[in-house]
Amino acid sequence: MDVNGTVAEGFEPVRDAFVKNFELLGDRGAAVTVYRDGHRVVDLWGGARDFDGDAGRAPWERDTAQIVRSATKGVAAAVLLLLWQRGQLDLDAPVGEYWPEFKAAGKERTSVRQLLAHRAGVPVLDRPLTPAEAADPDTGAAAVAAQAPVWEPGTDHGYHAQTFSWLTGELVRRVTGRGIGEWIADEIAGPVGADLWLGLPKTAQTRVGRVGPVAAPETAGALRTRPKRAVSEAYADPGSLTRRAFGAISPLPDENDPAYRAAALPASNGIATADGLARFYASLIGEVDGGRRLFTPETMEPARTEQSAGPDRVLVISTRFGLGYMLHGSASPLLSPTSFGHPGRGGALGFADPESGIAFGYVTNGFRKSVTADPRAQALVRAVRTALS
């Protein structure tokens, strides 16, 4: 595999792991970027830009971007935490204080904090939305506002795989008057120079590769905190919270469709380069290249402080969440107990580790069935840990 880019002295294990991802774990096209103390120490890319392309012999370039699925949730969470940092949002206020229609069907006391910690009790919709309906912020917001919770808000937690889009997007719109994609462009991506988008503009369409499914070795990737069979059964059962949560949009959208990429669904369809994802996380824990820092230390604390832990009503296995971020644990192994970030189903991963000053971004065009602990991303994380030691 012809791998391009650079690694700083001492970070050679990351390059070795990146090459092995192509040789052993099925990567077709991918990139990984790592920052340490706000400076880039790993910047690698390789393979083909398009997963499926016979036309797709076009190589992955340094500025190639890909859809990152649920890794988008970490960017959406930053919007709400920044609004709190600026005094525009109270984390402990009811969501209905900002969004009156949400005060329905037993959700009157659901707080912003519970929403971010996946404790709001609305991971499913009784009637799934079509892709066109899901892309309409008014339709999505109305559906989740009318939905009755499947557990009493605040009493348990379960991954809001799709509904996180309309929960966060509408709350931002009510507080700021702007769409969440516009807010991210103006207040996050632009100021820190990160190549990431929620609602892909036409000017960036040619930079985004096509994605597709890649087979996994039998021994790789499965979460083992509960028997693999139990997880498989939950996904196979049409009546399970697992299937219903991931099926809140049905049929699943075509992720290569320009119309889908132009929509703003903060649970699932952000697009980023590996550098954009890593640079975003670097800006949460410090200044990037001597420039702007997004989170104050006081804002970083709720992001990485445990709000939910234990068996997840949706993912079945045990998960840990701060406010909007997955935390280091068996479901999503990150760098250390201080790490916070978010994986994307099937591959992508972004996180920050305040203790070591590391910020990490990995994107790929080959998606696997794993939800959280993708073995390719995990191999790279282990290599970063080796480099630091």
Rank of each mutant, 00 (worst) to 15 (best):
G190D: 08
A352H: 02
L125S: 05
P227Y: 02
Q205G: 05
D54I: 15
A383I: 00
D289V: 01
D43C: 08
P137A: 01
R178C: 06
R62D: 13
A245S: 15
P59R: 12
L89P: 11
R376V: 11
F351M: 14
T338E: 13
V144S: 02
L265W: 08
G347H: 12
A31H: 07
Q162G: 00
I358V: 15
N21D: 13
D63K: 09
R261W: 08
F321I: 00
D54N: 13
E301H: 02
T168R: 09
T33Q: 10
G169Q: 01
G270N: 05
D43K: 04
L198R: 06
R224E: 15
A272N: 05
P131D: 08
S330I: 06
R243M: 14
A30D: 05
A142T: 11
Y325Q: 01
T203P: 00
L25A: 14
W151C: 03
L125P: 04
G121V: 07
Q114C: 05
G190E: 09
V68P: 01
L82N: 02
F164Y: 15
E97Q: 12
A262S: 12
A117V: 01
T206S: 15
K73Q: 11
A65V: 03
D275A: 10
G361I: 02
A105Q: 14
A359C: 09
L388A: 08
W166C: 02
A383T: 03
R49S: 07
A274Q: 06
F18A: 09
A236L: 11
T72N: 07
S232N: 14
V19T: 12
E9Q: 13
L284T: 14
V68H: 13
G181T: 05
K103D: 12
R210M: 09
T242H: 14
A132H: 06
P137H: 03
S250F: 11
L200E: 09
G366N: 11
G10W: 03
K103F: 00
A48T: 14
L89D: 09
A146I: 00
G322M: 08
A267P: 07
P253C: 08
S240R: 10
G344R: 12
A142V: 09
P137W: 01
T130G: 07
S318R: 13
E187I: 03
V208S: 12
V214R: 10
N365F: 03
V381F: 07
A222Q: 11
A71Y: 00
Y98V: 08
E101L: 02
D156C: 02
A77N: 04
I249C: 08
S332A: 15
D289Y: 05
A278Q: 06
R127K: 15
P354Y: 13
E133G: 01
D312Q: 10
P217S: 06
H160W: 11
T139R: 15
S283M: 02
P251H: 11
E97T: 00
G344Q: 07
